[in-house]
Design a protein around this nucleic acid. Structure first.
Length: 924
RNA sequence: GCCGGGAUGGUGGAAUUGGUAGACACGCAAGACUUAAAAUCUUGUGGCUUCACGGCCGUGCGGGUUCGAUUCCCGCUCCUGGUACCA
């Protein structure tokens, strides 16, 4: 009855899906489950641009496909709604962040619904809702009440640790704790004051309060985690970040370092992301040992991965911040050493990072003794040694370490080779070489020398083998308003948890969202930010949780978002299990993806969830970049010259809104109306058109290259947007958004529509038997689509649909036997038009209840093959031959061919390669 | 510096175990329909060469393996993501 009209049918089906709760997921043990997760969006004020839905479209296609295959699918969406931008906006405008957040969420939801996603909106969660963050706080409490037992390799309850302290103290206890924990007996424990007991327990708790060196961002007024800092600047906003010592809550993620590393073996993620996590965890095996300082009672502890090179040590280097530095400086070195420390300390973290070439250091005047050979070696201060890694001191082996080598060269220190090889090109690591000049280690290969050296250390009680991690414990507090309050109060400066019945601890109202005049976090502005127990009223913690708190467990809450008794019921957690497919950007590789794995492992340890790894399969979508358009203004005029002619004039390029450019052709009317100063603009055209230049840049407002999906949907429809985003190229690849090809996709949908209609626009579908060609086209497409979906190759599927529709159009096919399954296989990609066609075919139910058609090989069987015949590897002619021919028969047929005869020039071929069903190659 | 990813027509991209390079689409050109435009449809379209048949070149560059290489191996160039004195 009508032409293809996406705006009408898309609204219609979106309403149908919503009203009939089509995508509502319920536990159903009779069906296999499939849990598909999209990365948790932060609802920003700018709304969605076309880059955001890329991954959502891909996962939506997969879930719709899985449904057609009989899976029970959970495909939820929600919002990571605590965060900095809403708070910054609140500071500027006084508007409560909850209001802005609500508005942004409304807009996001509307935009997402316009694209026709099969989300189960019943499962929506928002991290800033009380009934959500109640459980974020609850998980924090469990972490506070747990410690990590290395013996059993899992988290256990603090109450069991107390029992242990009461019987044997911490002697022989193998648990993760602070470095400075001292040994104590059961008797000591009994004699501890309550305060001492609490302080001791804090050294074991999986979340603890401690003085830590943090990344302090003054402009944002808060601390940041390592992954929120890029090159010394905050990731959000680009403000400078400095190192500062502060009392902060931390999460003992390092306790899980090994399990986080091992778990990577069990998940199906791409290798680069796994590698990034491995590097971030940074496990290195080595040894820790002490050097006695000559004439001192002090011992300097160093960590090394190359204890085999111990005889090559020619000096020790200490970080300028090392605790011993002041004591080791002798009178005659005082001036020079202290000056150096002062300059090194004043150099900001950023300078130190950006300037790694400059070699600097100072001799302390003191000497240490190498316990292996009794040699005295100089102790230096050097800022290439980091205070935060290992022990803050290194044993320098200039011959086999590049940094030590450069330092030794610069200060003219001894370089002593202890591994066989040539020193011509400076230092070399010499892995695999034989040890020389090393007393009892000489003539051994690296590994054996290490083992022997470690045995020596242990025998003389001066060291041991040790595993070091680069990863630090994760700071868990932010001095901000818009985040989860910590369920903690203070009594005599020591932290205690509030009662579980008092959860959630609701975020209080404040007059302003800024820190107080004394630099306290915004929560200090709240009146009565206190907690009352039977024994009195106490102040509550004033910092809030970081952004990653709420996002580290949201995938569990989606299973059971309204549960008020538990964060997820064990029945639902058991049924839905791990996420089967997680699609999102790679930017979360070392933040969210590591923290989520950590919390999941912890929740597993305490028996609340049945899985250890939350995300079984992960795909990282490539970012969609912006594609900017430019116009060229002749300098000093209001005249613009088309791209092809711009070199004939003296011009300056100007960004132009990509939304008034189509296929790089500028819409002149819209351009002159774009800005007041352009009303009287004039143009120099080429072939009657103004062609714009283009460049790939980040998508941003200032570059006028932001494309809103709503605009595309209004012009072409959501199905076109969905297909086009997929058609753009492989999901994982980075690519610029470019609407130049979108017409092709839109045309394809119109052609598809026409297959089901006659020239008058009436539905015209025949019940006649389909022809072999028609069946072949259909089944070829079924096969290809299925393979592509299984490989997440969405762009090639779209191409195969186009081929299919082109072929069926050429065949003038209108058979139900073909068109019905065709609608089904296209439905994951273009669900609205598929639903409409399905209903036009007379179906009462939704197409999501259909079954994915079964591929039938027999329709594709060919009796003959068009053989490409090559001469010396170059294709010269084609020969259509029956597939039943033997190799010899094919060979004979090929040699008889006219073109082949011509190339042979009467000679006999040297060799013939015949691959039946594939090719023929003749070597002359 | 180190660890990843990539480079194919004017453009986005395809070629799933080495077997017809350029599928599909955009753009462009010509034509049909139209008073005209839009829309739609048809045909052509890697480069060079040829009236044509055809030939030569061609997947970032230089080598190699192979009957045959976009695909495998070695050595480079450029772009891009991560990471950065981690001992």
């Amino acid at each position: 009855m009508a032409d293809y009209n996406p705006s009408v049918i898309e609204k219609k089906w979106q309403q149908y899906w919503e009203q009939n709760q089509v995508f509502n997921a319920k536990v159903n043990p009779n069906k296999p489950k499939f849990y598909s997760l999209d990365m948790f969006p932060y609802p920003s004020g700018a709304g969605l641009h076309v880059g955001h839905p890329l991954g959502y479209i891909a996962s939506d296609i997969v879930t719709r496909y899985k449904r057609l295959q009989g899976f029970n699918v959970l495909h939820p969406m929600g919002y990571d709604s605590f965060g900095l931008p809403a708070e910054q906006y609140a500071i500027q405008t006084g508007q409560h962040p909850a209001i802005t957040t609500e508005e942004n969420i409304t807009r996001y939801t509307e935009q997402l619904k316009n694209i026709g996603f099969a989300f189960d909106w019943e499962k929506e969660v928002r991290t800033s809702n009380q009934d959500y963050y109640k459980w974020t706080q609850w998980i924090f409490m469990q972490l506070f009440n747990s410690y990590y037992d290395k013996e059993e390799n899992k988290a256990k309850s603090i109450s069991s640790l107390i029992e242990r302290f009461q019987t044997t103290g911490n002697l022989g206890l193998n648990a993760v704790c602070d470095e400075d924990t001292i040994d104590f007996t059961a008797e000591d424990w009994e004699n501890f004051s309550d305060e001492e007991k609490q302080k001791t327990l804090l050294k074991y708790r999986l979340t603890y309060l401690a003085e830590t060196t943090v990344n302090w961002c003054a402009a944002l007024g808060t601390v940041l985690s390592n992954d929120e800092v890029k090159d010394g600047f905050s990731e959000r906003g680009g403000h400078p970040v400095e190192r500062k010592k502060m009392m902060q809550w931390s999460m003992r993620i390092t306790a899980y370092a090994d399990r986080l590393l091992e778990g990577l073996e069990k998940v199906d993620w791409n290798e680069p992301i796994k590698e990034m996590q491995r590097n971030w965890i940074g496990k290195s095996k080595g040894a820790e040992m002490v050097f006695q300082v000559k004439g001192h009672d002090k011992q300097i502890k160093v960590f090394t991965t190359r204890i085999d090179t111990i005889y090559g040590v020619t000096y020790l280097a200490l970080a300028p911040e090392h605790d011993f530095v002041a004591d080791l400086i002798t009178k005659d070195q005082e001036k020079i050493a202290n000056e150096y420390i002062a300059t090194a300390k004043n150099r900001s973290e950023r300078d130190r990072m950006s300037d790694v070439k400059t070699i600097s250091g100072a001799f302390t005047g003191s000497y240490a003794i190498n316990p292996f050979n009794g040699e005295e070696i100089q102790i230096w201060i050097a800022d290439y040694v980091l205070a935060g890694y290992g022990t803050g001191a290194v044993m320098a082996v200039p011959a086999h370490d590049e940094r030590d080598f450069n330092f030794a060269k610069h200060f003219d220190l001894e370089i002593r080779q202890v591994i066989e090889g040539s020193m011509e090109n400076g230092s070399f690591p010499g892995k695999g070489g034989t040890i020389i000049n090393s007393d009892f280690l000489s003539n051994l290969p690296m590994q054996q020398a290490m083992d022997k050296a470690i045995a020596f250390l242990e025998e003389h009680k001066i060291g041991k083998g040790k595993i070091q991690y680069r990863m630090r414990d994760a700071i868990f507090t932010r001095q901000r308003y818009w985040g989860e309050p910590l369920p903690v109060y203070f009594n005599d400066g020591l932290p205690y948890l509030i009662n579980e019945q008092d959860l959630p601890l609701v975020l209080p109202e404040v007059d302003k969202y800024l820190p107080t005049e004394d630099g306290e976090p915004p929560l200090a502005r709240a009146s009565n930010w206190t907690y009352t127990t039977a024994s009195g009223t106490y102040p509550l913690e004033k910092s809030t949780m970081p952004g990653w708190a709420g996002s580290s467990w949201y995938f569990f809450r989606y299973m059971d978002p309204k549960n008020s008794e538990e964060f997820v019921s064990s029945e639902k957690a058991a049924y839905w299990g791990a996420v089967d497919l997680y699609i999102g950007g790679a930017e979360h590789a070392t933040g969210h993806l590591l923290y989520s794995r950590f919390w999941t492992k912890f929740l597993f340890d305490i028996g609340t969830v049945p899985i250890e790894e939350p995300f079984q399969k992960m795909i990282n979508q490539g970012m969609i970049q912006g594609r900017s358009n430019f116009v060229y203004r002749i300098k000093g005029s209001n005249k613009f010259v088309s791209h092809g002619l711009k070199d004939q004039y003296d011009t300056s390029a100007m960004h132009v809104d990509v939304n008034i450019v189509h296929n790089d052709q500028l819409n002149l009317e819209k351009f002159t109306a774009w800005r007041p100063d352009l009303v009287d603009a004039t143009f120099i055209l080429e072939d009657g058109k103004y062609i714009c230049g283009s460049e790939v840049e980040k998508m941003s407002k200032s570059k006028y290259n932001v494309v809103n999906p709503d605009d595309i949907i209004e012009r072409y429809g959501a199905d076109t947007l969905r297909l086009y985003e997929m058609f753009l190229g492989p999901l994982e690849q980075f690519k610029p958004w470019n609407t130049n090809g979108i017409d092709g996709v839109s045309k394809f949908l119109k052609k598809l529509w026409k297959l089901y209609h006659d020239n008058q626009g009436n539905v015209a579908v025949s019940n006649d038997k389909a022809s072999p060609e028609e069946l072949k086209t259909l089944h070829k497409t079924i096969k290809k689509t299925k393979e592509d979906l299984d490989n997440y190759s969405f762009n090639t599927s779209v191409a195969s649909f186009m081929i299919c529709v082109n072929e069926l159009s050429a065949l003038k096919c209108n058979k139900r036997e073909i068109l019905e399954p065709l609608a089904v296989i296209i439905s994951p990609y273009a669900p609205h038009v598929a639903e409409e066609l399905w209903s036009l075919l007379g179906h009462e139910n939704s197409i999501v209840e259909a079954a994915f058609p079964v591929f039938n090989e027999s329709y594709l069987v060919e009796s003959s093959h068009e053989y490409p015949v090559s001469v010396n590897g170059k294709m010269r002619t084609k020969l259509s031959l029956s597939l039943s021919l033997s190799k010899e028969e094919i060979e004979k047929a090929a040699l008889e061919d006219e073109t082949v005869q011509k190339w042979l020039e009467g000679k006999a071929p040297k060799k013939m390669i015949v691959v039946p069903g594939k090719i023929v190659n003749i070597v002359i």
